[in-house]
Amino acid sequence: MAGAGENSHGCENNSDLEEDRCSENDFGTSELGTKEYWEETYQKELETFKDIGDVGEIWFGEESMSRVLQWMDEAKINENAAILDIGTGNGAFLVELAKHGYKNLTGMDYSPASVELARNVLEAEGLTDVSVKEMDFLNCEGQLKGFDVCIDKGTFDAISLNPDNTEDGKKMYVQCLKDALKDGGFFSITSCNWTKEQLLERFGEGFEFVQELPTPSFKFGGKTGNSVAALIFKTIH
């Protein structure tokens, strides 16, 4: 399991200084935006888990999970709230959510190896009542609905890096998110490719900004900035 430090694996743009805030076209596409890359990655992690029981890398590190869980505590998210982990990867966040007392959990990922890995990890933890679906979030065709909370740690980043139909994919993501959430539902996003201002613009229609979660800062050239943005939104219809 990855250490507790902030992990920006897969990030194409790690500068968040005021003068260096990137436009939507400042970073290019990447293999990190392809299904083939993630299938290969999670197939290796699945084999490692079966060999030695290591769940693999935690996207953005354990601190990223802790800050979202702390917000959920402060927001008094009910233990029976329907929660969707978008792009669940190895299922590590589902495990933490379950250990934190949340009972109505769903994870989804378009990588078959990721889904198998997440199911294996959950089973090893005795969490057999957590649902994990093999599904492309952008092509879920109305199968994801009625969630109180949707959580994204890096999936929107990956979609933004897809070499094919990048802009369409970003627009589809926003619409699919609206469809998945209940009216008044919450959306938590952690990103290393997009700044706070860019995320506020991208999710400006149909969502209300609730708060920014604290992330580690760094200093460069006498300026202070953050390599990761973590925001909470609420749906408004």
Results as ranks from 00 to 15, higher is better:
A92Y: 05
A92R: 05
A92E: 14
F93M: 11
F93G: 12
F93C: 11
F93E: 05
L94F: 06
L94T: 10
L94A: 11
L94M: 04
V95S: 02
E96R: 06
L97P: 14
L97Q: 08
A98S: 15
A98I: 06
A98N: 12
K99D: 15
H100P: 00
H100V: 00
H100Q: 12
G101S: 08
G101V: 00
G101L: 01
G101W: 01
Y102C: 09
K103D: 15
K103H: 09
K103Q: 15
N104I: 01
N104H: 05
N104Q: 14
N104T: 11
N104W: 01
L105I: 11
L105A: 09
L105K: 11
L105P: 08
T106P: 10
T106Q: 07
T106C: 12
M108H: 09
M108T: 14
M108F: 09
D109V: 10
S111H: 10
S111P: 02
P112K: 11
P112W: 01
P112N: 03
A113S: 15
A113R: 02
A113M: 08
S114H: 07
S114N: 07
S114E: 11
E116D: 04
E116Q: 15
E116T: 14
L117R: 06
L117K: 01
L117S: 04
A118I: 06
A118P: 15
A118D: 10
R119C: 03
R119W: 00
R119A: 02
R119V: 03
N120W: 12
N120R: 08
V121Y: 08
V121P: 00
V121T: 00
L122N: 08
L122E: 11
L122Q: 09
E123N: 13
E123P: 05
E123T: 13
A124L: 05
A124S: 15
A124Y: 03
A124N: 10
E125R: 08
E125W: 03
G126R: 04
G126H: 01
G126V: 01
L127I: 07
T128I: 13
T128F: 03
T128M: 06
D129L: 06
D129K: 15
D129G: 00
D129P: 07
D129C: 04
V130Q: 06
S131V: 14
S131K: 15
S131I: 14
S131W: 00
S131R: 15
V132E: 01
V132Q: 11
K133N: 07
K133H: 09
K133C: 05
E134H: 14
E134W: 02
E134F: 05
E134L: 15
E134V: 02
E134M: 14
M135P: 00
M135H: 11
D136G: 08
D136L: 02
D136Q: 06
D136I: 12
D136T: 10
F137C: 08
F137V: 03
F137I: 03
F137Q: 06
L138I: 13
L138E: 07
L138K: 08
N139Q: 10
N139V: 07
N139C: 05
N139G: 04
C140P: 14
C140G: 13
C140W: 02
C140K: 04
C140F: 04
C140I: 00
E141N: 15
E141M: 11
Q143W: 04
Q143K: 05
L144Y: 05
L144D: 15
L144H: 04
L144C: 13
